[in-house]
């Protein structure tokens, strides 16, 4: 099942946890667990959506909240290779 997920991600598109859960016929929570496993193995990585202190004092820094606190995953080269 986790390999199915990796193969799905290797196609290269945008997904939500919901759309992946539907595609794999499992719960979103389980997809999240699979992503955790894949991240542990270096097959996917999570993006740092924070300003990392770079925009301290910027009046617009709060607007980075566009993606703050949301987790975003992407496939690594190792992940793509494993999927193939």
């Amino acid at each position: 099942m986790i390999l199915e997920l990796l193969k799905l991600l290797a196609v290269g598109s945008s997904y939500t946890l919901t759309s992946l859960a539907e595609a794999l016929d499992v719960s979103e929570a389980l997809v999240e667990q699979m992503l955790t496993d894949l991240e542990r193995g270096g097959y996917v990585s999570t993006a740092d959506t924070s300003c990392a202190g770079q925009c301290a004092g910027c009046p617009s820094s709060g607007l980075c909240a566009l993606l703050h606190g949301k987790r975003i995953w992407t496939v690594t080269a190792k992940g793509l290779q494993a999927a193939r």
Binding site: S14, L17, I72, T74
Partner: peptide, 9 residues
């Protein structure tokens, strides 16, 4: 090409 997975609140 690479996929993205975004968490939707």
């Amino acid at each position: 090409q690479a996929a993205f997975i975004m968490e939707m609140p």
